[in-house]
Amino acid sequence: MTPSPAGRRAAARVATLGPGFAFLTVFLLVPLALVLSYTVFRRGRFGGIVYEPTGENFARLADPLYLDVVLGSVRLAAVTTLLALLLGYPTAYMIARLPGRWKAIALVAVVLPFWTNFLIRTYAWIVLLNSQGPVNSGLEALGLGPVELLYTDGAIVAGLLYAYLPLMILPLYSAIERLDPQLREASANLGARPARTFWSVTLPLSLPGVLTGCVFVFVPSLGNFVIPELLGGGRRIMVGNLIRDQFLKARDWPFGSVLALAVIAVLVLLLFAQAWAGRRAGRNG
């Protein structure tokens, strides 16, 4: 007996969505709900949770101190994302257009540095940016230095950009590669100049990749707490430091959970916006 089309569709839905969401429910939703359930309980005197309901943790969120930190880190994360896009888009575009063999090499070359170790790479940046390091020696030779590079916001942005650039390039590559070269040829044949072809054909069609890449870079930039410490010299803290400090230093898991929940709420809104824009771009394309 042949299954009905409706039955087939249902089977396909379960086969594709079932395993993934079952996994996510057990290993993401339940653990997350566990942590988020702390938001309504009290911190124990020496850490841990006391299961007495309270609304205090949420009230503390209104503190302007945290808002300052959030705004400051949103700014740094946004600059990082913008720079990643400016560097990453042309790079992904070029990789997608490379002949096959070189394409694979260029793509792997993007992630290869990341097969070493995050801390080691970050320390290498300290060496590069140090007052006695090569960048400053170069600037001095040109009569431009020395400049204070390390322990500045600039150093934090450089470190974040370095850490997350591949998260921009890979989704962009995946989105750009699928674009049919014939589309652009058609556009060119119709007399459009390359710039116009780019703005009206390539860019809109690769928009889902752009959005994915931006979320991938922006979000972990906001949450990173090691780079502000090492490259920023601990002179600036970001949202990640705030959450880390509540969980690890103050051992205030309830308030740490509230901060995490606030960040997640904002990011989920961003994701909805992304999904919406993605679908819109999809319909237009």
Binding site: R45, L65, V69, G72, I237, N241, Q246, A250, R251
Partner: peptide, 21 residues
């Protein structure tokens, strides 16, 4: 010694110092 409830005040102090620009 561990300060119990008051350790939150120290975390806050450290946050305020680090957050000041």
């Amino acid at each position: 010694i561990d300060l119990g409830e008051a350790s939150v005040a120290y975390t806050r102090l450290a946050t305020e110092v680090a957050a000041a620009q």
